[in-house]
Write a protein that binds this DNA or RNA. Structure first.
Lengths: 111, 111
DNA sequence: TGCATTACATAAGAATCTTATGTATCTTTG
DNA sequence: CAAAGATACATAAGATTCTTATGTAATGCA
């Protein structure tokens, strides 16, 4: 079982930022595989969703990039900027708070 | 502070279904106010988001409706169908599971 | 050699929300 | 008692963000 896609909406950017906060630098494909492994295939990030997100983070100045060649194949590393680190804390705190609120809502019992 | 709107995406239907599971029947405006109160103004459901969602639930057969007049003003009550009750359990379980997964992801510490 | 994997990217379309607008009734308050 | 705010429905244009499809190309392995 993996989650219906609408749940991922709105959390993808936070997931990516958090991974970058833990790993100093990562490249796109590595992010998809890491999330897949960490969640036992429950969260599968598609490339069509990931790359535009990474490009948006870059144009917002939240990450910097380094392109390297592995043999003849290009690999683009992403790394948090100082603003990105601050943004990560914000987003993680917001999501944590949101989940607590949702947990409360879902736990309410009928009278 | 209220949550950035993208977080609500994908959870609105589940919130509505869960409220209906607890309250037998509710009308649209009541749903917005109940969520606002239960979450201390953190989750504010707009009418432009709610009504299309309710209509979708109805056309999917997950809720039935009853229109009543309060004075001259119309009020449309929504009530879970049997399929709606089953769907609610599914959606609540899925969201709970998703939140546990997200909590795990967000709690991972850097090495 | 051919298939799976690694690795990037973009684009059309779908889904779901925001913001704006419209209509109308009822309640409260200066 | 008039005006403002609250109650109550609804729709539509536009924005955002995802899916699905497609493209390119190198690498690994059976």
């Amino acid at each position: 079982m993996n989650y219906s896609s609408e749940l991922i909406k709105g959390t993808l950017k936070t997931i990516v930022l958090k991974l970058l906060a833990n790993n100093k630098r990562m490249y796109g494909y590595e992010i998809t595989q890491t999330v897949k492994e960490l969640t036992n295939d429950k969260i599968l990030i598609t490339e069509g969703a990931l790359y535009p997100t990474l490009h948006a983070l870059e144009s917002d100045g939240l990450v910097t990039t380094e392109t390297e060649f592995i043999g003849k194949r290009v690999r683009k590393y992403y790394r948090l900027s100082p603003e990105g680190k601050a943004k990560t804390k914000e987003k993680v705190n917001e999501l944590t708070d949101f989940m607590n609120t949702m947990k409360f809502l879902l736990d309410i019992k009928p009278i």
